[in-house]
């Protein structure tokens, strides 16, 4: 049995391409699953972007650089990293006790959302427009195939895929072909690229801030 926490620890030092049975998706996506689920996961090259909310200072330069890099303009909608949504009131929106919850209007902790390069979008896309970049491990969208149906956006566990109305195409994090712009411009190093073998600790830290503050 491979535990949710153990899976990545046990993967350290394992070569790219190793095939696992278990819950890597559930761990990376935060989706519920049990450890006996039959998914077959292939650990790919690359890794993912993770934010440490302790360090995030809510400037949104990551959103900006992402948007510039991919679409040429500036917009939180176009950006693949999502700061604006959680910025003021935390991941669960406005609560009656907003003063004690996360967010700029709460305890000051900002919890941006990033793509975890899981398989959900690739699996739900009816156009088979989303595939894995073998060099970076990023799930990338083929805009020629994408019809903007929004299935991927709807099912994305992190809600970091958007359909851009102006072109009716879905957009998501592609790790900037291995050189993520968001991390380059972050003024505190809060958002970083983590190879899979280092991702567990980073995600564990991040996950501390995804729930409601009790």
């Amino acid at each position: 049995m491979i535990t949710r926490r153990g899976i990545l620890k046990s993967s350290m030092g394992v070569a790219v391409g190793t095939v696992y049975h278990g819950t890597l998706i559930s761990f990376l996506t935060g989706c519920g699953s049990d450890n006996s689920s039959p998914e077959v996961i292939e650990v790919m090259a690359g890794g993912l972007m993770v934010v440490n909310p302790v360090m995030c200072v809510s400037c949104r330069r990551c959103e900006i650089a992402c948007s510039w890099n991919h679409e040429g303009d500036c917009s939180p909608t176009l950006a693949r990293v999502k700061v604006e949504r959680n910025m003021n009131f935390g991941p669960h929106g406005v609560q009656f006790d907003y003063q004690t919850q996360h967010g700029e209007c709460g305890d000051g902790t900002v919890v941006p959302a990033t793509c975890r390069q899981c398989e959900v979008c690739t699996q739900v896309c009816p156009q088979q427009a989303i595939s894995t970049n073998p060099l970076t491990g990023a799930k990338i969208i083929d805009e020629e195939r994408c019809v903007g149906c929004g299935y991927c956006a709807d099912k994305c566990p992190q809600q970091v895929i958007k359909v851009v109305r102006s072109k009716m195409k879905a957009v998501k994090c592609d790790l900037c072909n291995g050189n993520p712009a968001c991390a380059q411009v972050c003024p505190t190093g809060a958002i970083k690229f983590y190879p899979w073998e280092e991702a567990e600790a980073a995600l564990e830290q991040y996950e501390k801030y995804t729930g409601l503050v009790s």
């Binding site: 302790v54 360090m55 995030c56 200072v57 809510s58 400037c59 949104r60 330069r61 900006i64 700029e104 305890d107 000051g108 902790t109 411009v185 003024p187």
Partner: peptide, 19 residues
């Protein structure tokens, strides 16, 4: 002091977020 804060697009962060 919990962190610095400030405005959109600014890396300087002149605000003080205090607990």
């Amino acid at each position: 002091m919990k962190r610095t804060g400030g405005c959109h697009s600014c890396p300087i962060r002149c605000f003080c977020e205090l607990k």
